[in-house]
């Protein structure tokens, strides 16, 4: 174990800004990418459902 306390952990030996700036932005970026991918798939599905429904109505 490297850290005596939580504040030591967050300070990262004086490099807190740089270390947490790196890990924080990476975590945020991967999370946002995953959410965008999910939105893209659900949007596409909704659009196609609407198109297919319109087609069926036209045929009826």
């Amino acid at each position: 174990m490297n850290w005596g306390s939580a504040s030591e952990f967050f300070a990262m030996g004086g490099y807190g800004f740089y270390v947490w700036g790196s890990f924080g932005v990476t975590a945020a970026a991967l999370l946002i990418e995953a959410l965008l991918a999910r939105k893209r798939l659900s949007d596409t599905r909704r659009l196609l459902r609407r198109e297919l429904a319109a087609d069926r109505d036209n045929q009826d």
Binding site: M1, M12, V19, S22
Partner: peptide
């Protein structure tokens, strides 16, 4: 990255950026 890997002899804790860089 944070609890097992030791402090670096030159770069202290700053080197931990390596684990994602």
């Amino acid at each position: 990255s944070f609890f097992v890997a030791p402090t670096d002899f030159q770069q202290g804790e700053g080197y931990r950026i390596i684990f994602i860089h």
